[in-house]
Design a protein around this nucleic acid. Structure first.
Lengths: 189, 189
DNA sequence: GGAGGCATGTAAATGGTTACATGATTGG
DNA sequence: CCAATCATGTAACCATTTACATGCCTCC
């Protein structure tokens, strides 16, 4: 599972509570991995049993900080360079694209326009995030900028692609409507 | 769940067996969603109970084709335009990037070089796939090309990004080694 | 005093992976 | 006849989401 390693990675920077870790998932990791508090709290307990983290004393409002151990750092390192990453992607919005051909052309165009706008909005908020963070040249921040750059490129790429796809569909649609040439022919085998 | 809708989408084109659907996941949907046969067979049974698909008679080697029903098409349509897509991404390889700062600079560079090569390979195989498919101008194929274009753009973007990130790291590393200026200063708060 | 954010947890249900298990058919 | 591929399924385990549940603290 990646959740435990993501938690180790976050704790490698500094100790944190389950609540803080949940916020970090929402703020910085959301674009590549998500996890809710109901998954994080029990996982921290299991990790403590394994000796990858240690729980500190209870603070205000029942708050409990966890700190990474030497074993935890070893495991994080092993995960990072030991086993090969799973490069597969899971993206529900893109899955839908495969089936847009079942819609009326104008419905499909509407779908893609909405996607383009969502990606444009995503780009804007990443740019805002970038501007709002007081980046320094610590290791965490240098890698953070590199990860954020990927998010910016992803948003731009997806916006451009969705705009392009909309044009493709519109062109095909117009051709069909105007010249009747794009009706579905029998599928070759 | 998206699996059922993905299956509906595939069956909307033509009836197929669980085995064929499994292959289609591997071949065309793999880049955005994955599913194994052990998930697909029981799901088809549940979908048949709900009346979204109907099972045909048993053919050679126990093969059983499923066909989408009118209710299934209605549900597919509702999913496509009725509820808003989950645009979140899940990508383990990108998750790791956030924690590369915990590695030695040369380990991090090796990691990113490997990623760049993996994306380059991915691009090559998508290009081969594109060339190998006898695209026609049916709806399925037109949307298929649009989805594949996204895959091509993703691979190019990721290759460029990983190359750029490698350069960034190398530049930072050299600066540290040569001028000692990049040591981690205290984090601003 | 109440709203909102801090803070932690559990339970139930659902989704997904890995391993186990079996057998038919085809082509070399 | 043997290997590969076709073909289907179940069981156990693990991961994830959603809903339930509670209480503190701060600021207005």
């Amino acid at each position: 599972m990646s959740l435990r390693h993501a938690l180790l990675g976050l704790l490698a920077d500094k100790p944190a509570s389950g609540y803080e870790l949940t916020k970090q998932f929402e703020l910085s990791l959301a674009n590549v991995w998500s996890a809710s508090h109901s998954q994080i709290y029990p996982e921290l307990q299991r990790m403590a049993e394994r000796g990858w983290v240690v729980a500190g004393d209870e603070g205000a409002r029942g708050r409990r900080d966890y700190a990474i151990t030497a074993d935890g750092r070893t495991e994080l390192h092993r995960w990072l360079i030991g086993d090969r990453p799973d490069r597969s992607n899971r993206n529900e919005a893109m899955l839908r694209v495969f089936f847009l051909w079942t819609l009326d052309p104008d419905e499909a165009v509407t779908f893609l326009e909405r996607e383009a706008n969502a990606y444009r909005d995503g780009l804007t908020s990443l740019e805002r995030l970038d501007a709002a963070i007081p980046w320094d040249d610590s290791g965490t921040d240098r890698m953070g900028r590199i990860a954020l750059e990927q998010g910016l490129r992803w948003s731009k790429m997806m916006t451009d692609w969705a705009d392009w796809a909309t044009d493709q569909l519109r062109a095909g649609h117009d051709a069909t409507t105007l010249t009747d040439r794009q009706r579905r022919p029998a599928k070759r085998h």
